[in-house]
Design a protein around this nucleic acid. Structure first.
Lengths: 267, 267
DNA sequence: TCAATAGTGTCTGTCAGACAGTATGTG
DNA sequence: CACATACTGTCTGACAGACACTATTGA
C-alpha cells in the first residue's frame, strides 16, 4: 500500500474516477453458528418476519455496511444475536453468489462458520421475528444425513425447520467444515468452556461426528499432542459433585492449533 | 425453491419491492492460476495497464456480470487468459472484502484457485497490457518463503513482480491451500497431462512443496491407494526416448479424490 | 560395460484400533 | 460393600521413514 503513491498520475486518475457500468451487488454475511447444548450439536436460526421466505428459518446475517470489513460485519451480527461481543471461533466458509438466490436483487453472501461453548438461548428483539437453537441433526440439509447415533434431542418426529434461500446448503457445507477441522485441528476445544474435562471434550466429538473415538485412544492422542490441552488447577468446586464417581482432572485450551497426524473420524 | 410459491403474499411483495438503502458493491473474481513448467511451480500474472497500481502485476480477474454466477465468471476469466475453455481444477479460495483494498470504490473479490497441467504462454491481447508466468518461488508474498529447494528458474537475482492490491496475500493463501490439498487429496494429478509417469507426478510434489517424498514410499502410497492413478496403455511413443534409461510405466488419473490417511509433507 | 532412469524389497519406529484392567470418588 | 465415573496399560496391525537393492534401456 505504501508503495502506491509513487505511481505518477494515480492521484489525478482517482480524483477523476467515476464508477463505470458494472453490475451492482448487495453483500451480506450469513452466520452458521454452532454450539453444543446438552451433548447435542445445535445451530442458531431466525424465523423470517418478512418476504421473501416469510415464516421460513434462516441463518442470522445481514448486509455488510459501507466502510465495514466483511469480518467486522460477521462479528457485529454475532454480537447482535448473542447479546455480547463474540468470543468464540470465527472463520470464513465460502461465498454464495448464484443469481436468483435472493429474488429481490443480486446478492452475494459471504458465509461464515462460528462456534462457541454452550451459548444461552438467544436474546429477544433484533430484526428477526424469533430466534432459537435447532439440533443440527434435525435439519433437512442437502446431502446430509444428520448426526446418526448422537443423543437425540427431540425424538424421531422432532420438528424440522424449513430453510430459506440456499441456507440448507450453507449449513451442510459448514457442518462438513467443522467435522473435517475436528480431525486435523484442536477446534473441538472451542466448544467447551474452561476448565473442562477430557470426557466433556470427547462428548464434543460425539456430538459433531455422531460417534466418539475410543476413550483410551482419545486420551492418548489429546494428552500426547503438545499444546492441545494444558492442565488446570483442580477447582475446589463442590457443585460438580452431583454424580458419584471419581472427580476428573481439569484442563484448559493449549496453544497448538494443528494436529499432525490428524485424528481420523471413525468409519 | 419450489416450495416458496406457497407463501401467501410473496408475489405481491416482490412486485412492490424496491431496493432499500444498503451499500452498493462491485464483485470481482481473482484467479490464482498455477501450473508446473519445467519442474517449477508458476503463477499467471497480468501487468496492469491502468490506474490504480499502473505497471504493477496482478492476478487475472474481473467483474462478475449481471446474471452470471460467481463460478461462471471465474471460468470466463480463465478462458479469456488461456484462450480455451478451462479444463483443469477450479475451486473457490476465499473472499477479500476489506474497505480500501481498491481505492476506486468498494469491491469484494471472490478469489479462486485454479490449476492445470503445463499451460502454454498466455495469449496476447485481452484487457491486460501483458501477461506472463512467474515462478511462485520468486514472488514476494506475505509470510511466504517461496519454495526452498525447488529447481530455481531464474537464479538468485531473478526478477520479482510487485503485486497490486492485496494480491500478494491472495497468492500466499492460494499457495498454502494447494500445498495442503496435496496432502489429503489427489489434487497433484491435476498438474500433469495424461498419460503421466510416477516420476512426473512426484516432481509435482517437489515443485509445490519444495521437497519430494521418498521415492519408494511415494510409489507405495500412490499405487496402494485405490483410485489415485490407474495404469495406462504403454504408448509406442519413440519420442520419449531422448534419455537413456528404463522406459517408465504410464498412468492416468483415477477416480479417488481423498487420501486417508494423508500423505504428510516432509519436515 | 557404463550411465541413467525406473522400479522393488525390507527393516524399523510410530501410532491408531481394540479392549481389558485399575483408581478414586459417593451412598 | 456396590456402584459410577475417571483413568491406565498393553497387544496388534497399518503404515510411513529410511535406505539398499534389482531391472531395463541406450550409448
Amino acid at each position: 500500500m505504501s508503495a502506491r503513491s509513487r505511481v505518477p498520475g494515480e492521484q489525478d486518475f482517482l480524483a477523476a474516477y467515476h464508477p463505470a457500468d458494472f453490475p451492482v451487488f448487495a453483500v451480506t454475511v450469513d452466520m452458521a453458528l454452532f454450539t453444543v447444548r446438552a451433548g447435542v450439536l445445535c445451530t442458531l436460526l431466525v424465523q423470517r418476519a418478512e418476504h421473501p421466505y416469510l415464516g421460513y428459518w434462516a441463518l442470522p446475517g445481514g448486509f455488510v455496511r459501507a466502510g465495514e470489513s466483511v469480518e467486522a460485519a460477521a462479528r457485529r451480527e454475532l454480537a447482535e444475536e448473542t447479546g455480547t461481543p463474540f468470543a468464540g471461533h470465527l472463520e470464513q466458509l465460502r461465498t454464495y453468489g448464484d443469481p436468483g438466490r435472493d429474488p429481490r436483487m443480486r446478492v452475494v453472501s459471504v458465509a461464515h462458520v462460528a462456534l462457541a461453548p454452550d451459548l444461552p438461548d438467544p436474546v429477544a428483539g433484533g430484526d428477526a421475528g424469533s430466534a432459537r437453537w435447532w439440533a443440527t441433526e434435525d435439519m433437512r440439509v442437502p446431502g446430509g444425513t444428520g448426526v446418526p447415533g448422537a443423543p437425540d434431542a427431540g425424538g424421531a418426529d422432532a420438528e424440522v425447520p424449513e430453510l430459506a434461500f440456499d441456507h440448507g446448503q450453507i449449513v451442510a457445507d459448514a457442518l462438513e467444515r467443522v467435522r473435517a477441522k475436528l480431525e486435523y485441528t484442536t477446534l473441538a476445544t472451542g466448544f467447551v468452556s474452561e476448565p473442562f474435562t477430557l470426557a466433556e471434550l470427547r462428548r464434543v466429538y460425539l456430538a459433531v461426528w455422531g460417534s466418539a473415538p475410543d476413550l483410551g485412544n482419545f486420551r492418548r492422542k489429546v494428552l500426547g499432542t503438545a499444546g492441545f490441552v494444558v492442565p488446570a488447577e483442580r477447582s475446589p468446586d463442590p457443585a460438580a459433585g452431583l454424580a458419584g464417581g471419581r472427580p476428573p482432572l481439569l484442563y484448559r485450551r493449549g496453544s497448538a492449533s494443528a494436529l499432525r497426524p490428524p485424528m481420523l473420524r471413525p468409519g
